[in-house]
């Protein structure tokens, strides 16, 4: 197996990396790029902890070959904040105590961001439906759902 060169942007920065055909985007981000915000949870697309954005679409990085993001724009949880200014979804997670152990949080925030990009003021049912692939085992969903709705409301007010 030979390494292949892939060119893509990570959080706005152009990268050129040598990866093996069986390397997963998740591991390239975590191990080669030291972007450990993206988590390995189940590895089979059940939990959503590894969710990143590829060309704006929420994508499970544990089921994405690194070679297949050639030419794409990848955004991870590390890329949401602008300098010291957190993304409104991140702010809302803090304000609403939507983080306990924090393991599912990066995936949750990426999914919440994607929903608000599509639909700035979702209903609670829409939030729950959109988030059904992101599993949490300690915080509880109520505060997570509330945080996403609050982030939508605040964005509308500002």
């Amino acid at each position: 197996m030979k390494r292949q060169t892939v060119r893509f942007t990570i959080n706005g920065e152009a990268r050129e990396l040598a990866v093996y055909p069986n390397d997963l985007l998740l591991n390239v981000l975590r191990d080669q790029e030291s972007l450990t915000g993206t988590k390995y949870g189940c590895g089979i697309g059940e939990c959503g902890a590894c969710t990143v954005q590829v060309d704006g679409a929420p994508t499970l990085s544990c089921l994405k070959l690194a070679v297949s993001v050639d030419g794409c724009k990848v955004v991870t949880i590390e890329g949401l904040a602008k300098g010291n200014q957190l993304d409104p979804v991140q702010e809302a997670f803090l304000d609403n105590s939507a983080v306990q152990c924090g393991f599912c949080t990066p995936g949750m925030v990426m999914m919440g961001r994607a929903l608000l990009d599509e639909k700035p003021r979702p209903t609670e049912q829409e939030v729950r439906d959109h988030m059904r692939g992101s599993l949490c085992r300690c915080t509880g969903y109520a505060s997570i759902v509330r945080a996403i709705m609050v982030a939508g409301e605040k964005a509308e007010l500002s």
Binding site: M1, Q4, Y20, P21, N22, D23, L24, L26, N27, Y40, C42, G43, I44, C62, L65, V67, S68, D70
Partner: peptide
């Protein structure tokens, strides 16, 4: 039980 990495090797074509 490992699902973090892919162990088997393969080639990938991207036509």
């Amino acid at each position: 039980t490992n699902t973090r990495i892919i162990v088997p090797e393969f080639d990938v074509r991207q036509p």
